[in-house]
Amino acid sequence: MESWHSNRLSTRQAGLVETWLPGVRLVSDLSWDLIDTAVLEVESARGRYIVKAGGPANHHIEREIRAHQSWVRVLSCQNRAPKLIHADRSASVLVSEYLEGCLVEGTEAEYAAETYVQAGALLRAFHHQAVRSDPDYEAAATAKVLAWLGEPHRIEDSDAAKARAILGTYEPRPVDVVPTHGDWQPRNWLVDGNEVRVIDFGRFEFRPAASDFCRLAVQQWRTDPQLEPAFFAGYGSDPRDSELWNVMQLREAVSTAAWAYNVGDHEFERQGRQMLHDALHRF
């Protein structure tokens, strides 16, 4: 007989959830099958929740737990992000509250200016909790992208050579880093009535603030340029440094194209190659 978690969870993970949420039942499997993160909407007598779990090599769950235990409260206390209910880092499993709302992506809200004013304000609150100088971030981020270029990919040879040349001569300097979401875009925003909420902190890390603008810059802001000033009206200022921003977008493009190829997401891979083509034109 199929288990309540559709065999998405290990025996240990399922046992923990059953202890935390007696009588747990599956409502919907929301997992994104390109990676080994299980995302399950469940309910028990205590209410409705989201269960997330990952395999031994999955770093997203640990990051999300760390984010919730230290930084997400600034949003969750306003009901603008989910509250963490239970977590076990060693088992790579967590339970968070279920937030009402529908995904912004694919709805009218995706191209509504008010959505971006709110998203900017929420991100400002998240970023402004802490700041520190990191002398190593830029060098490490660049080395990681150069390593991607050494792995199998379908980036055009000429584009790969240009990217390698630019990044190979780039001279990193210390940068200010803040708590970042890592995937700040409409597929991780909910709208409930007129209120925007944020989910999925599995890519949380301390990075330059502008790194959280990268996805928007190549997607929604490009489709409707009026959304960019709406976002910064909520955020309060535009902290982008032109040289760092250009390098950041180049690294993001390479990583997107190479990672998407690696997991077999062909649409995202095409987007990454287009991002790279556009990023290279800035140099």
Rank of each mutant, 00 (worst) to 15 (best):
S6I: 01
N7D: 15
G15M: 12
E18H: 06
P22Y: 04
R25W: 00
S28L: 12
D29W: 09
A38Q: 05
V39S: 14
E41K: 15
G47L: 06
I50N: 06
K52G: 12
I61T: 02
E64D: 04
I65T: 04
S70I: 07
W71S: 00
V72W: 01
L75N: 00
Q78L: 15
N79V: 02
A81D: 01
P82I: 02
H86T: 00
H86F: 14
V95L: 06
V95I: 10
Y98I: 00
G106M: 11
Y111M: 15
T115G: 13
A119C: 07
A121N: 04
A121F: 03
A121L: 05
L122E: 07
L122F: 07
A125S: 11
Q129K: 06
V131H: 13
E138N: 02
E138M: 09
W148N: 05
A160V: 09
A165W: 13
T169C: 05
E171W: 10
D176P: 02
H181Y: 06
D183Q: 02
R187M: 10
D192T: 00
R197V: 02
G202F: 09
F206N: 01
R207K: 09
R207C: 03
S211V: 11
C214E: 13
A233I: 04
G234F: 09
S237W: 14
S237F: 14
S242D: 15
L244V: 00
V247R: 12
V254A: 03
V254E: 06
A257D: 08
A260K: 01
Y261H: 12
V263I: 12
G264P: 01
E269S: 01
Q271H: 15
R273C: 05
L276G: 03
H277Y: 07
L280C: 03
H281E: 13
F283V: 01
